[in-house]
Amino acid sequence: MTYGVVLFHTTASAMQAEKVLSKAGLKVKLVPTPRQFSSDCGIALRFDWEQKGQVESLLTSNKVDTAAVRQMEQ
């Protein structure tokens, strides 16, 4: 399964992202940041890669600060 992972600078943004995306009905999960990506913030947000466009536009329109979006096979 192909997932996307949103990385954040701060935990507060991860929580904000989870709230915004869950409210919009997207299936997301907060996970420990996969070590291969970054250690910026201990918590990352995993989503279904097919919903990348929706995730990114919702985060942008809600002014959620993110560090990066990465692809991950699991």
């Binding site: 935990t11 507060a12 907060l30 996970v31 420990p32 940041t33 913030c41 201990g42 918590i43």
Partner: peptide
């Protein structure tokens, strides 16, 4: 909070 990434931390 924000340290561990498991369910209680989240």
């Amino acid at each position: 909070p924000g340290r561990s990434g498991h369910r209680l931390s989240i």
